[in-house]
Computed example of a mutant assay.
Amino acid sequence: MTEMSVRGLTIAVHAGHRDEALAFYCALIGRDPDLGPDPDFYEWEISPGAWLQLATGRTAITPSSFRLRLQVESIDSSVKILRGKGFEPSAVKRLPGLVAFSNLTDPWGNPLGLYEDLGVVPGV
């Protein structure tokens, strides 16, 4: 083989206290992690081959320089659900025909967000 064949990706987020971090990310994602191979390391398969990794128990955390956005089916419903759970997502911004998104941060300053792809018709 002369070319590299990328088949997946992982994105790691560093956070503080394990219980607080797990509570935050389980509430954000809406389920428990798929894997917990270490007492301070957890993983969710967000879509086939795409994993969110959570490294907890960190004491000196530099917030990520990138925004991790999670795709949702309905941005308005998802923002409402998060607000009901005590999250503080921003107002939804829309780029008609393209995307709608909302931003938030985790307790350690990591930039996060949700987005809805407005260019895709559900069920098609």
Rank of each mutant, 00 (worst) to 15 (best):
D106R: 01
A60P: 01
L114K: 04
I29R: 00
D76Q: 12
G36M: 08
G84Y: 07
L28Q: 02
I61N: 03
P39V: 02
A21F: 10
L82D: 08
T2Y: 03
I81M: 07
L68E: 02
G97V: 12
I11E: 00
F66I: 15
D76R: 15
R94C: 08
A100P: 04
R69W: 04
H17G: 09
S64V: 01
E73C: 02
G57N: 05
D40P: 02
R31M: 07
G36Y: 06
Y115A: 05
C26N: 11
V99E: 12
V121D: 15
F24D: 03
D19I: 06
S102V: 11
Y115W: 15
P107T: 12
G57C: 05
P39W: 05
S74V: 05
L35N: 06
G30F: 03
V92M: 04
S47Q: 14
N110P: 00
L54C: 03
L112P: 04
P48N: 08
V72C: 11
A27D: 14
T105E: 15
D106Q: 04
L28R: 01
V120T: 11
Y25I: 09
F41Q: 09
L104N: 04
D106F: 13
A60H: 08
T59P: 00
D19Q: 07
F24S: 03
A12S: 12
V92N: 05
Q71A: 01
A15Y: 09
Y115R: 02
R18E: 14
